[in-house]
Design a protein around this nucleic acid. Structure first.
Length: 297
DNA sequence: AGGCTGTCCTGCTAGC
DNA sequence: TGCTAGCAGGACAGCC
């Protein structure tokens, strides 16, 4: 399930394998994967042909490649592009760099063929929650990404603003962590992991957090994301892989997510699982109390 | 108007 | 053995 670390791994792969290459043709094999491209699959293919890929960028879980040309030179690191190929991996999306001779993947949705006849870029997505589109860049960010907050790995992320916004929310802190307009890039796995590290219950209203608790939570989010990125992300199965089809190893380091019934790494209390927002929340019932301790009973 | 729920989608697995 | 129900969840429309 791609969250920020997994998307960043894919971004690095795209940067390495596709920057500077020119598109010969794009083929849409499943219209749903292009549903965010309002003008339709034919327009998508026509506009992508002949364009040169710039350096892949990311904000939160969104990924995009600035497009140059025709008649416009790609210069590494420059931001002169007006348009980008934008992607979101959703639940099961993969961007793979595959030799042209490699057989089609079962869930191949979009194929990009380059003019150099080198490896193709393939968008593969079993559940089609993800998708690609072409989008206009404004201040270097695709228009349809402008509404989400910066992610916590962004040097311009405003810690004080996030802490202040979190501390006026009546909703639970996990819902706030998953709100991409507040902080982007965090999904169900890393939300549970960060809450475990910060020893906070997922339903604690944001407004009940002391400033130090909110800061501790943000620090925990950053730690978890950085540690996961360092080992290539979290892979439970073949649904998340880098552009070369390789898995990450952070699943070995999970303390809460998916650990129902296993002892908490701090206090040995069995990790609990409860339904939450049509998904699951995992937490330690002892380390992560719903209520702050009362002075007396 | 912020908060919250339903919906999309496919494949795997548990259970009968 | 074969069927079904349940589960995985990011993002957004739409409801209250």
């Amino acid at each position: 399930m791609p969250e920020l670390p997994e998307v960043e791994v894919v971004r690095r792969g795209l940067e390495h394998w596709t920057a500077g290459r020119t598109v010969a043709a794009a083929h849409a094999l499943h219209p749903r994967a292009l549903r965010r491209h309002a003008a339709g699959p034919a327009d998508f293919a026509a506009r992508l042909a002949g364009r040169t890929f710039g350096t892949a960028r990311r904000r939160g879980k969104y990924l995009w490649v600035p497009l140059f040309g025709p008649g416009q030179q790609w210069r590494d690191g420059d931001d002169f592009a007006e348009e980008a190929l934008l992607g979101h991996l959703g639940m099961s999306g993969q961007l793979l760099v595959q030799p042209a001779a490699a057989p089609d993947e079962k869930h191949l949705r979009v194929r990009v063929v380059f003019a150099d006849d080198g490896p193709q870029l393939r968008f593969v997505d079993q559940r089609t929650f993800g998708g690609l589109c072409l989008d206009l860049l404004k201040d270097g960010v695709p228009a349809s990404v402008a509404h989400i907050a910066r992610d916590p790995m962004d040097p311009l992320f405003d810690d004080a603003k996030f802490v202040a916004a979190l501390r006026v929310k009546s909703t639970g802190v996990k819902r706030a962590l998953l709100d991409q307009s507040l902080i982007s890039g965090v999904g169900n796995i890393y939300a549970d992991e960060a809450l475990w590290r910060a020893k906070l219950h997922f339903e604690r209203p944001g407004s009940t957090l002391r400033p130090a608790e909110a800061a501790r939570l943000l620090a925990a989010v950053r730690e978890v994301l950085a540690e996961a990125l360092a080992v290539g992300g979290t892979s439970f199965d073949s649904l998340y892989v880098n552009v070369n089809g390789e898995s990450g190893y952070f699943s070995r380091s999970l303390n809460a997510y998916g650990q129902a019934g296993r002892p908490c790494g701090r206090c040995q209390t069995p990790i609990a699982r409860v339904a939450f927002m049509n998904r699951s929340s995992y937490y330690c019932p002892r380390c992560q109390r719903a209520q702050m301790k009362k002075a007396s009973a």
